[in-house]
Amino acid sequence: MKKAGIKASEIAGQAMIWMLLLAALFVSSIPFIFMITNSFEEFSYVLPNPPRIFPTRLDFSAYEYIISRSDFPTAVKNSVINTFGTVGFAVFISMLSAYGFARIKFKGREVLFRIYLLTLMVPGFLNIIPQFVVLKSLAIPGFPDGLVGTRPGLMLIYIATGVCGHTFFLRNFFRNLPDALSESALIDGGGHGVIFFRIMLPLSTPAIGTMSIFAIQGMWEEYFTAKVIVGAQESMLTIPLLLQRLNGQHATRWEWVFACSLMALLPIVILFVVFHKKLVVGGLTSGSVKE
């Protein structure tokens, strides 16, 4: 009798949870539903009246238009290369840094780390001009005119601006790993290189993976730096730049914008759906508050 009572309240509780969550889900999906609906329409530059919330038809011509644009493959190619190239390098360099800050004592370590922390709080908007000037003066072999307008130039800035945040996140992760492991390695005569590659790296895959996914998302949507550094090179076009191009001066074909937006969003959503179970968000929390 009592058991059945608990069960009934349990079911009622679950029903309540479902209702609340479905309501929340509906509200939070409105913009997405709206985008999907309107990507099937044809606007010829004016908005429909009344506004469409649910699709009235299934028409993929906006998608076909975007895919058939001659600049679409270029944009996809560049976005993919830039994003994965940047994240790969940035994460590796940051892991090295984070290990240095977490596990090696050296003079000035704390001050340096605080400077890293400080850079995260300062708006980085105006940095673009000095960054550009530096790139211009970097005339390395193969790039006699400097790195402006080149992929290495753009990626260099992306990587550099990512290092502080990534280091910050990973340092805390490394600090939380048990000391005993690395101490034994030190006693066995292994240097920090050995500890880093043999012990830390394998242990920190979840943290690295989590951070990479967040970094990929950030890079994928980056607009401003790309515009300034490679904006003058048609061959360096990225998806966010393409999206901005669709948003016209005098009028906008919304179905193109939405179709392109949704296509840009898809890879990131897939990434999250596939990896969401592996994300260690807990590390993120302790990351910012931990001494």
Binding site: L118, S286, V289, K290
Partner: peptide, 11 residues
Amino acid sequence: QMKGLYLTKAI
């Protein structure tokens, strides 16, 4: 981990 928050004195 909350103890001794980093940011305060340091920045």
